[in-house]
């Protein structure tokens, strides 16, 4: 910057202003494709969705908030609300716990072997969720369930994994935890590595045991990354589609539907686009609150721009 202004100072203030103007013109031009994607394919559809949700099924008449009022009267809709919240909170809790324990365990073994273990445990995250869920579907298959076969070896009666409400809800959470825990693992492992070794040495000199080191050094140092990953994962889990769609298709009796799968059922499969748009819009307030909190955490990079 200094160099540019110095060379330009010789030719006068006018060309400096022109240079600055050109710089910002170039910058805006470089951002045009990005703006097209963000405005045309995210912002516009989001607003358009609000408009869509106020039409009747044939999309010929403006009906105001009728679609929303209709949903409020449906018991199924409230079940979807409860199930989405339960699913997101329970799944994220276990993903974070398992991810944290696994990351901590990997971090205790000699550095030489860590890569290998980390590589193995990332596999569920790498396989597209829709495809690995097919494997789980087969594992839960009523007649041939390989998990029930194992349980039978220990004289435990067969579990109706996908056909009873409780177990179906349990199963979709299990698959989601299996798929998502590696993401937490990798985030926490990176965060663990960035904690300065001196802090642990100082704690050890002060006579701290392993538990105290965890509570008073590791957790405070990781507070920020734990907050971001948990909030981010709540968004992704809350908006999940793949796993429920492949594993239960929302059944039995709509008990495992999430907002996304229910919106798909109503909007695409039943052809009631406005009603589907209304369902998916209910995700928006929750996501907006979470996004606001995350944004406060990551503002540092934005301020750097």
């Amino acid at each position: 910057m200094v160099a540019i202004t110095a060379t330009d100072a010789g030719t006068g203030g006018g060309s400096l202003r022109r240079l600055l103007r050109r710089r910002s013109t170039i910058a805006v031009l470089m951002c045009v494709p990005l703006l097209a994607v963000v405005l045309g394919l995210v912002a516009y559809p989001a607003v358009y969705s609000l408009f869509l949700s106020m039409l009747n099924k044939a999309e010929t008449k403006f009906v105001g908030l009728d679609n929303f009022l209709f949903l409020f009267k449906r018991e199924t809709f409230w079940m979807v609300v409860r199930q989405s919240i339960l699913f997101a909170l329970v799944a994220v809790l276990f993903k974070a716990l398992i991810g944290f324990i696994a990351a901590h365990t990997i971090n205790t073994i000699p550095a030489k072997g860590q890569r290998k273990w980390r590589g193995m445990m990332m596999v569920p995250w790498v396989i597209p969720a829709a495809l690995s869920t097919l494997g789980w579907w087969w594992l839960f298959e009523p007649t041939y369930s390989a998990i029930n076969w194992l349980l039978a070896e220990f004289a435990i009666p067969a579990v109706p994994w996908l056909s009873q409400t409780f177990w179906a809800r349990f199963s979709v959470i299990v698959v989601n935890v299996w798929f998502g825990a590696p993401f937490f693992l990798i985030m926490y492992l990176a965060a663990l590595k960035s904690i300065p070794e001196e802090l642990y040495e100082a704690a050890a000199i002060d006579g701290a045991n392993a538990w105290q080191r965890l509570v008073f050094v590791t957790l405070p140092m990781m507070r920020n990354i734990i907050a971001i990953t948990v909030l981010f994962s709540i968004i992704v889990t809350f908006a999940n589609f793949d796993i429920v769609r492949v594993l239960t298709q929302g059944g039995p009796r709509n008990s495992t539907h999430l907002f996304a799968t229910y919106a798909f059922r109503l909007g695409i499969e039943s052809g009631d686009i406005p009603l589907g748009a209304a369902v998916s819009l209910f995700m928006f307030p929750v996501l907006a609150v979470l996004a606001f909190v995350i944004l406060r955490n990551v503002r540092r990079r934005i301020q750097a721009i």
Binding site: S24, A27, P45, F259, A260, A277, L295
Partner: peptide, 28 residues
């Protein structure tokens, strides 16, 4: 290249990243 609105745009990009596909598939 700092320019007018670059901070807002960066925030906007991050927010866009947080918008899940299951919110947009019907209007899209």
């Amino acid at each position: 290249l700092k320019f007018w609105g670059s901070g807002v745009l960066a925030t906007g990009i991050f927010l866009t990243y947080l918008v899940p596909d299951s919110l947009l598939f019907i209007p899209l």
